[in-house]
Simulated assay, not measured.
Amino acid sequence: MKSAAVVNYAPEKGSVEIREIDKPEIGEEDVLLEVVNVGVCGSDLHQWTADHSWHVNYPVVLGHEFGGHIIALGSRVTGWKEGDRVVSETAAVIDPNSAMTRSGLYNLDPSRKGFGYGVNGAMTKYVRVPARCLHRVPDQLVFEQACLTEPCCVAFNAVVENSRLKPGDRVIVLGPGTIGILCAAMARLCGAEVAIVGLEADKHRLDIAKQYGCETIIGDAMPWATQRDGLGADCIIDAAGASITLKMAMQLVRPKGHIAKVGWGPQPLGFSLDQLVQKNVTLQGSFSHNWPIWERVIALLASGQLDVKPIIGGVWPVTEWHEAFEKMHKGEVVKSVLKPV
């Protein structure tokens, strides 16, 4: 049986197309998942526009934000059954014996390969998933929202695990894309005052950020950063896809403040890091997530404490992937969601 899939087939710009692929074979520790919904990530767009900075195993089916129903189980899979509603983590291949994996931080295993670039992802009807990646989805959480567990986990890791926010902190988020808005929402859940910064072209996405109780800024954020005592914001979350925003972050952060960098920026820096030293600032990278973060985020989504509905700009069949990608690329929607056919 063949299914339509969104395939990134070469490193050149625009090398994405619909192809018919076979239903995957599963191993003894895998499940076969019938995908209900899959989110379009900024990294999918970067592979489409060929300005990504990570290794891709071409050709590969895109998509790593997904949920669906189990329809088959490997012989050694326990604790799951056909029909279970699940979402999947992204670490499709890990070394179980690496020091990172053995300490629970398999997201930092150097040999890790993820869905949608290292192995085939979920922008198709069926995907092979290691059972260790699965998390149960409560009945009240619809898949349109559940499939966005993954970007919510990226935000949780950046804001909760890799920052040191306290209620009343002033936080600036640079970049109003999906991750930026979700980071802002997480910071609000932590009790912080939050401003999110974008460009004139980001006005629509900034308006959506307002629904999470954030101030929105186009242009210079320094007046907001220094509003309380003149020293700068407690924490800057750099969720933009350009390296220059790190320079902005160093200017906006207060002495002994914190910068969490979650956005990828492949360009060379081209500026001094002296402010980092002079201000005694902590610069913290944040990558991916692990099992306990997923459990926390699913609980937040299921309870309604974290609502992703405002960022969902529409649902398209996978065969209309190009329109869904274009809408995100142009900033017309924050998040596109696909549905296999």
Results as ranks from 00 to 15, higher is better:
residue 78 T to I: 10
residue 68 G to M: 10
residue 72 A to K: 15
residue 78 T to K: 15
residue 66 F to C: 12
residue 84 D to C: 05
residue 67 G to P: 07
residue 82 E to G: 02
residue 86 V to P: 01
residue 89 E to Q: 13
residue 80 W to H: 14
residue 68 G to E: 09
residue 78 T to A: 14
residue 86 V to F: 04
residue 67 G to D: 06
residue 64 H to A: 11
residue 88 S to W: 03
residue 84 D to L: 03
residue 81 K to H: 06
residue 85 R to G: 05
residue 80 W to L: 12
residue 86 V to G: 02
residue 86 V to Y: 06
residue 69 H to M: 04
residue 79 G to H: 10
residue 88 S to G: 12
residue 70 I to T: 11
residue 73 L to K: 13
residue 85 R to V: 10
residue 68 G to V: 07
residue 81 K to L: 02
residue 79 G to V: 05
residue 66 F to T: 05
residue 88 S to K: 02
residue 83 G to I: 04
residue 65 E to I: 03
residue 68 G to W: 11
residue 63 G to P: 03
residue 63 G to Q: 11
residue 73 L to W: 01
residue 61 V to C: 13
residue 71 I to Q: 08
residue 74 G to M: 06
residue 76 R to P: 00
residue 61 V to Q: 12
residue 62 L to V: 03
residue 66 F to L: 12
residue 70 I to W: 12
residue 88 S to V: 00
residue 78 T to M: 03
residue 77 V to W: 14
residue 63 G to W: 09
residue 63 G to N: 08
residue 82 E to K: 15
residue 79 G to P: 03
residue 60 V to S: 07
residue 82 E to W: 01
residue 79 G to R: 05
residue 62 L to N: 03
residue 85 R to D: 06
residue 65 E to Y: 10
residue 66 F to E: 04
residue 84 D to M: 05
residue 60 V to A: 09
residue 70 I to N: 09
residue 77 V to E: 14
residue 65 E to L: 04
residue 71 I to M: 04
residue 72 A to Y: 02
residue 65 E to C: 12
residue 65 E to W: 10
residue 78 T to P: 00
residue 68 G to L: 07
residue 83 G to Y: 12
residue 70 I to F: 12
residue 67 G to S: 13
residue 90 T to Q: 13
residue 75 S to E: 15
residue 64 H to Y: 10
residue 73 L to R: 06
residue 85 R to Y: 08
residue 76 R to I: 01
residue 78 T to Y: 08
residue 61 V to I: 13
residue 87 V to H: 00
residue 72 A to G: 00
residue 66 F to H: 15
residue 67 G to N: 08
